[in-house]
Design a binder for these strands. Structure first.
Ligand code: ZN
Ligand code: ZN
Ligand code: ZN
Ligand code: ZN
Lengths: 133, 133
DNA sequence: TAACGCATTGTTATATTATAACATTATTAT
DNA sequence: ATAATAATGTTATAATATAACAATGCGTTA
């Protein structure tokens, strides 16, 4: 039996490293531009690395913005329960780490007969700074 | 003073009509293809209608899928509190109408000092049908 | 009625985001 | 060694969305 991957490949490391240093969500093509000096030449190389990193929870995708951000929440072993706050003015994004919220959503059930294995929640508003402008 | 728009324009009506009849999320270019017989020729005509319809809550965007679906929840006067369940196998999408959930999320506060005016939540899993395959 | 403000429309071109397809190389298990 | 799986490299193309500009329609108000 082939084991589940436990290490990161070369391209995955390069992309993760760049996204982690950014400390804010990045667009795929901005990542591409910035890692070209490291040898990644084509969009697919970035997207493939991102796909894997998202799958294993090192990176999350901000769906409403098509951006990618490093996970700040050490418990996100996989990207199956994510919540973000997004400022609609400055686009600052913060990963929400709130155990009550995650418990509530992970246990959520409705009458559809569907058992949810994953969720993504995006809150929008104005951050402190932008509110006081 | 110019009043807030209370009616739908021609293109907005055409697009909304098509999306409502579909009863499932549609992609923008599929909408475009299908309303070409009604005279809408360019992507922008569709996107502009969608933008407005989303703004007034008649249509919601499924962000993780880049699709658009008619609101099934008569209380969604504006698209500021949306929740969906998405089957990862057949892509069936249902708008969740659960007052406890919406109350919980609308009142959610964390320690970021941010007041949220809007959220979008997407649950993923397998629908009843797909679970029993 | 005329002038204004603003939403909408029409149109062409282009930007942005993401994947298809195929050949090759690397890694690990048996 | 052989096979299975994962990752890479590369070119081309698909899919999603917006820029820019000119024109029209419609309600407000002078
Ligand atoms: Zn995380
Ligand atoms: Zn802000
Ligand atoms: Zn709705
Ligand atoms: Zn299904």
């Amino acid at each position: 039996m082939v084991q589940k991957q436990e290490y990161l490949s070369k391209n995955q490391k390069i992309v993760l490293d760049h996204v982690e240093k950014a400390n804010q969500p990045l667009k795929a093509y901005s990542i591409l531009f910035n890692v070209q000096k490291k040898g990644l030449k084509a969009p697919l190389q970035v997207y493939r690395a991102l796909d894997k990193l998202v799958e294993i929870g090192k990176i999350h995708k901000i769906e409403s913005r098509n951006t990618f951000v490093a996970c700040k929440n050490s418990n996100c072993v996989v990207s199956n329960a994510t919540a973000f706050s997004i400022c609609e003015s400055c686009e600052k994004v913060t990963e929400i780490n709130n155990s009550k919220l995650s418990k509530y959503l992970s246990n959520f059930e409705d009458n559809s007969g569907m058992k949810y294995s994953k969720y993504n929640l995006e809150f929008f508003g104005l951050c402190k700074k932008c509110k006081n402008k």
